[in-house]
Design a binder for these strands. Sequence first.
DNA 1: ATAATAGTGTCTTTCAGACAGTATAGT
DNA 2: ACTATACTGTCTGAAAGACACTATTAT
Lengths: 289, 289
Amino acid sequence: MQISNEDKKFLELYSDSVYEKPSVTVDAVIFRLIDKDTGNYRKLPEKKLQVYLTKRKFSPFKDKYAVVGTFIDLNTELSNTMKLCVKNKVGLENFYYEQLYTFGEKQRDPRTRVLSVSYMLLTNKNEDLQNGAWFDIDLKQVSSEIISRDNGYSHSKKIELTLISEEIKLKNSLNIKIEKDNIEKLREVEITESDIAFDHIKIIYYALERLKNKLEYTDIIFNLLPEKFTLTELKNSYEVILGEKLLDANFRRKTADLVLPLNEYTSDKGHRPSQLFKANPNWDKEDIL
Amino acid sequence: MQISNEDKKFLELYSDSVYEKPSVTVDAVIFRLIDKDTGNYRKLPEKKLQVYLTKRKFSPFKDKYAVVGTFIDLNTELSNTMKLCVKNKVGLENFYYEQLYTFGEKQRDPRTRVLSVSYMLLTNKNEDLQNGAWFDIDLKQVSSEIISRDNGYSHSKKIELTLISEEIKLKNSLNIKIEKDNIEKLREVEITESDIAFDHIKIIYYALERLKNKLEYTDIIFNLLPEKFTLTELKNSYEVILGEKLLDANFRRKTADLVLPLNEYTSDKGHRPSQLFKANPNWDKEDIL
DNA sequence: ATAATAGTGTCTTTCAGACAGTATAGT
DNA sequence: ACTATACTGTCTGAAAGACACTATTAT
């Protein structure tokens, strides 16, 4: 970036305080997939999608759970602030992440105007983290209503997003309203009930939607799986996140290019051993050109 | 959102100045599709994708072109600030928009730390706007190199994004590098040359990518078209944005559900008249459930 | 033997790609 | 008649959906 002489002069005179400034946080929605033992020696463990929340130590929302986040620091890149925050607050490093959305509603923080630049993080590590807890995600659509009109439709749905740890169950409800006509499509997400801090349940919901979408056209899922996995494990992972059952034979066909077979097999499982696979890092290479 | 008594006490004591705050702008990448007459009475006009840029009146980057934007105001919702800014600065109202990405690199603004919450806007209006100019978008990939490795690949490409108005031609080059291995996928976008202000060419590039992606699985394109259009017009619009030719028969099959036929036809064209269509606002209704 | 998972084969339907062929206005 | 666009028909092959069938292990 070239800076002109005129710009240089201007910069010397520039006062930093002309405009009002908001506070800005970075917030990280951390997901993992965990195996839950079924007790039955034959049965495979169940996969569960979990999100990590920390317990707030200070007001506002003291003692409530919240997504991991921090106010930003003017000398650090946003993504680095987020990485440092996640490392220092909960002890997680080396994860997949992507920027999600910037939430900035006027009333989202009772203190003052606070923007949240949110990130979605995926990890395949199973160690427990600090200062918080992993919560199973139970997402239920409890109602859905479509009103058809000549020039479009209006769609409302109620969603219950319950977060369950070993100790506590946090209930959250969202109302989503989509209005579509010839001219525009409007989408509104409203929190009707939330046991967690701020508008964080909205951020989590947004991250879930992003994750689901990206499953369909990327290989993002491997960030949630161990290095070596079976195809059934892979399939269960898709199923848990998408919330629907897939047909086995078809699944194997569709994911054939996504994975590379290894010469290793599971054992000690009380049923036929399963071949292990790893992610194929060259899967999307042909799409480039 | 419930606020506890403890929170209320805390808020009375809360000082707004604990954390350093960045400046924040909202920035709008405005696209339209315009018909360019070919001179030949038989030939249909050519479609061009354009972006609207304003000329900066003050330092930094005085007299350079830039995306429409403004510093935010603490009492207004982000999207409203953006709408007001676009209305007041260039005179555009009633458009499709979506939030794009938040750019926050330390050195992106020479004055101080400035975050940009960027939006993509689509309009089908053909009136000229104020305080700037429409620029044809000429996006060329000038080189692409893939280095394959056992555990992944690395892909570099150079992109030339030239913006052309009636008066001026603005050259911009980007280097994009994607590194993928077993562990992570890294994407880096670097500006190697830019005739416009700040990192705005990056924002425009990002908006273009989003637009292309969304074309494939949404009906977003209708925000760029007049209310009534022919299927060839629709096809040309896709082609211009995607940068590739489509086969006519197949195109008509694929888009059949997206549109509703009208009992109107073009005339005076020097060739067979064409039926007019409008967008089908109920197209995505079945996906809901 | 049994329960549970692992994995293959194949029929049907749907859809994308390619392309030939027909239709029709204005000059 | 000619040109440029409008529109239809159809062959091919790939991929999605559904489901039956075979294989293999620990207890």
